[in-house]
Design a protein around this nucleic acid. Structure first.
Length: 485
RNA sequence: GCCCCCAUCGUCUAGAGGCCUAGGACAACACCCUUUCACGGUGUAGACAGCGAUUCGAAUUCGCUUGGGGGUACCA
């Protein structure tokens, strides 16, 4: 038999792809990449109530956007399909029957009420709840009786009492006393498998060799190992990752803001930055260069070096990282990505060339793509509101500067950036030499008149994008303000 | 209640007995650069949860305590 490395991510489509699931997917992907293995996607849609097609689509799209492409999955197929659990319902009873036949499992006819009672008893006695095995040795007569009553049995796995030890890839040796586990249900009375049973059967049949998942699954692991053993199957290697927590140290949930990858995208985060950031939660590069592509990370990835503790999801570093990616991104690509965030403006006012220019000169302070919205209103429309800069514009200084600008700019070429830059430079220098105006004061007057603001993008860039006519008109408007005072 | 996991600056982490007067990144603060905001640059401040034990020597090993997280289902 081959000992091919095969890992999987098995999200359940009861919501959009969670950032935590994305991180688990990433670590699986990295492991597969590093070890030359296969990365498999399986959809665990056993819970028909909560499953929605839109969630399935969202999971596919998000994973793809993050660059985590799978080798086998529901859409691309593969040798060990189907890769959607709901299409595998006929498989599980067969294996349950094998367990039944071998004596590793038995029927349980207990009602919910009976089970509830046992549980209450356990808490009262300060003991761990363990199923009583009431139905383990049931008489044929009793069984007949239950059937007559119309009861349907569930199937329980008979847990062998022993010390179970396994070596976790990230946490090291983990020990469990299986006598504390209790015989758990593997097939519900309605004929569908429970999670713990379905995963084992699927992972076994799909020949998954390494299971990397969140540590919320640690307590499932001994149960699953027991099933593998009972079936005489090879037990895979397990690795349990710490969880991602919200800043208040509780589980990351909707009340903390974005949780799904698609939420972050809507907020203006780049998937490249997101996946890079999430990789740094629990893993550190050996060369301390933190900005890296997934492929670069894969080369440097060693699963044993993943931190085994939980980590808190703080936006500060994500924001910084997103900004880094925005600064480095190709302008044309960035422009395409930014356009959806500019729906408040009439983009037809600007040529593609000018739009890209606008993006180029406004990208620097951005942390998210969405931030650009508030930075660009003055690139659109004829006039610009001057309320905020009224005081600044009515000073003696501004009056002088604007007058001079008006006079000189008539002759300037607004399509030549270099020339325009030099012209402005000269203007600043002259005012400094003749009137003692600080360069920034000179520029403030112009900026205020043209944009209605005291801060913003590079002035030369703004002037080129707006063009001479619009600029002069806005300057004139600002000067009218002065006359009125 | 019971079982399990975790514990280095505010946050993410480096650290696998002496290299640690504990390193880096983000955030904070200061200064520099500058046509503004920003970017960038240079600095400052900031941590081994506590207590015992092992050892010549402990952030690193062991135990306890405390704190945080997870599980405890015929959910996944």
């Amino acid at each position: 038999m081959t000992d091919e490395i095969r890992v999987r991510i098995a999200p359940s489509p009861s919501g959009n792809l969670h950032i935590g699931t994305a991180r688990t997917a990433l670590f699986n992907y990295l492991f597969a990449k590093k070890e030359g293995g296969k990365f498999i996607l399986r959809i665990e849609d056993t819970d028909a109530e909560r499953t929605k097609q839109e969630y399935i689509d969202n999971i596919f799209d998000s994973l793809k956007a993050l660059g985590l492409n799978w080798d086998e999955g529901p859409d691309v197929g593969g040798e060990y399909g189907p890769y959607t659990q709901s299409e595998r319902f006929d498989i599980y009873p067969k294996y349950a029957q094998i367990l039944l036949d071998k004596g590793y499992a038995y029927e349980c006819w207990c009602t919910n009420e009976e089970l509830e009672q046992e549980k209450e008893e356990a808490v009262k006695n300060h003991k761990a709840y363990v199923y009583s095995r009431k139905c383990l040795n049931i008489t044929p007569e009793q069984r007949e009786q239950y059937i007559k009553e119309g009861r349907k049995p569930s199937i329980r796995f008979k847990v062998e009492h022993k010390e179970l030890i396994f070596n976790d890839m990230v946490k090291g040796e983990l020990k469990f006393d299986t006598s504390l586990i209790g015989d758990f249900v593997i097939m519900k009375s309605n004929g569908t498998p429970t999670y713990n049973f379905a995963v084992v059967i699927d992972d076994m049949l799909m020949k998954i060799s390494h299971i990397i998942r969140g540590e919320d699954h640690i307590s499932n692991t001994p149960k699953q190992i027991l099933i593998y053993e009972a079936l005489g199957a090879k037990v895979p290697e397990f690795g349990h990752l710490g969880m991602i927590l919200a800043p208040d140290r509780s589980k990351l949930s909707k009340r903390h803001g974005a949780t799904a990858v698609s939420d972050f995208v809507k907020e203006g985060y780049l998937t490249d930055a997101l996946i890079n950031f999430v990789a740094l939660l629990g893993w550190a590069p050996s060369d301390s260069v933190e900005i890296k592509t997934v492929d670069e990370i894969a080369k440097d990835f060693r699963i044993k070096e993943i931190s085994s503790s939980n980590s808190i999801f703080e936006y500060d570093k994500l924001n910084w990282m997103n900004g880094q990616y925005i600064k480095k991104m190709d302008i044309s690509k960035l422009t395409d990505m930014i356009i959806p965030f500019l729906s408040d403006y009439d983009l037809s006012e600007l040529s593609r060339e000018k739009l890209e220019k606008m993006v180029e000169i406004t990208r620097e302070p951005l942390t998210t793509l969405k931030d650009i919205q508030k930075d660009v209103p003055y690139f659109f429309g004829e006039d610009v509101p001057l309320d905020e800069v009224k005081e600044l514009l009515t000073t003696e200084l501004s009056k002088n500067v604007l007058n001079k600008f008006m006079e000189l700019a008539q002759k300037w070429d607004f399509t030549n950036e270099q020339e325009l830059h030099d012209d402005l430079q000269k203007l600043r220098d002259d005012f400094k030499a003749n009137f003692g105006y600080k360069p920034k004061e000179t520029m403030w007057a112009i900026r205020a008149a043209v944009t209605g603001r005291t801060r913003g993008a590079d002035m030369v860039g703004i002037l080129t994008i707006l063009g001479k006519d619009k600029v002069l008109r806005r300057i004139k408007n600002a000067m009218n303000l002065q006359v009125g005072v």
